[in-house]
């Protein structure tokens, strides 16, 4: 019988190879720096699509995607720069898409909320809350049909846990024991409504077992905790053990939409935000690896400098790219 559980704290970083730790750090920093660049450039009014940033939530995408291979399938939501960038998405194509340029990963047709990139294995995000969940289930059906060892991972927020399609999909995947990892990034807010204003109980991970899907709740700001619990879920899925529902507790620092914070709106407090900023997934990671002596400041500085160059080049590429030809519209 499927159970729900709370994931244990992560094991010591000493249990992980140095390459793995650097990969996780780089993935998180890539998201953080790319999104901070978006926030910095957004006021120039050249990037015109709405942007839903997930600064503060980077550990979830990084910890999950570290367990995946290019044969796996990733789906996201309207707030899904993270999985794209963590899973090896192209920064140039990313920025070009946000700028609406022809070189964007969707030829400038989608923008921030609708990233798709076949070569990057990112088969789709959608601004319809919960919209990609059943599609991920279908890709798992295909994997089983073709005897592939692929796992389908769908990222969604606690808002999608309001929608019926999540439960229909859990039921379907549980019934057919499909290799799906349902990853709920519980950042507590859907637009401006707290989870407790929308759901009777704070128990998303416990809603898996009623459909035969084990549920695990994990500290979504601890990249190693997410990594370890996702590793187990992915391993089980690859061994035909069926799906898992992973609830990752985290928090978005910026407003629902746009490049800035939204504390003045009054629906959440500065104190609440400060508490979560103090638990920054990147800073926690740095403190831990330094304390354990597994990585040095110079290791992380090297990652940072490399990413800064990569992002500057990506932005320059995006800005220099042409807009789509108007004839493209009906093509």
């Amino acid at each position: 019988m499927a159970h729900s559980s709370r994931a244990p704290s992560a094991t010591s970083p000493r249990q992980h190879q140095r390459e793995r730790l650097l990969w996780l750090y780089r993935a998180m920093l890539r998201m953080r720096m790319a999104e901070e660049k978006v926030a910095e450039l957004y006021p120039q009014q050249e990037m015109r699509c709405p942007v839903h940033l997930h600064v503060g939530q980077e550990a979830v995408s990084a910890g999950v995607c570290a367990n995946l291979t290019p044969e796996d399938r990733i789906f996201g939501s309207h707030r899904s720069h993270g999985p794209y960038l963590a899973f090896g998405g192209n920064l140039g194509a990313f920025f070009a898409e946000l700028y609406g340029k022809a070189a964007g990963c969707c030829r400038g047709r989608g923008g921030s909320m609708h990233l798709l990139d076949r070569p990057a294995g990112y088969w789709g995000s959608s601004a319809i809350v919960g919209g990609t969940i059943p599609i991920a289930v279908g890709t798992a059906l295909e994997a089983v049909y073709h005897r592939k060892n692929s796992v389908s991972v769908v990222f969604f927020g606690d808002g999608a846990a309001d929608e019926g399609i999540l439960y229909e999909s859990l039921s379907y995947a549980g019934l057919k024991k499909l290799p799906v990892l349902f990853v709920c990034e519980n950042n507590q807010y859907a637009t401006n409504s707290h989870q407790r204003a929308r759901q009777a109980l704070d128990n998303i991970s416990e809603r898996g077992p009623v459909f035969g899907v084990p549920g695990v709740r994990v500290d979504g700001n601890s990249v190693l905790a997410v990594y370890e619990v996702a590793r187990e879920s992915v391993r089980r899925a690859r061994m035909s053990g069926g799906p898992t529902l992973l609830e990752c507790d985290t928090y978005r620092w910026k407003g629902h939409v746009g490049p800035v914070g939204d504390i003045p709106m009054g629906y959440r407090t500065q104190q609440e935000l400060d508490g979560w900023v103090a638990r920054c997934p990147l800073r926690q990671f740095e403190q831990m690896v330094f304390a354990e002596g597994v990585l040095k400041q110079s290791d992380l500085d090297g990652v940072k400098q490399g990413l800064a160059r990569e992002i500057d080049e990506a932005v320059a590429f995006a800005k220099a790219s042409p807009f789509p030809d108007p004839a493209e519209m009906t093509a």
Partner: peptide
């Protein structure tokens, strides 16, 4: 939805 996923692959 699941048919879409199958079709994509």
């Amino acid at each position: 939805g699941s048919a879409i996923g199958m079709a994509l692959y």
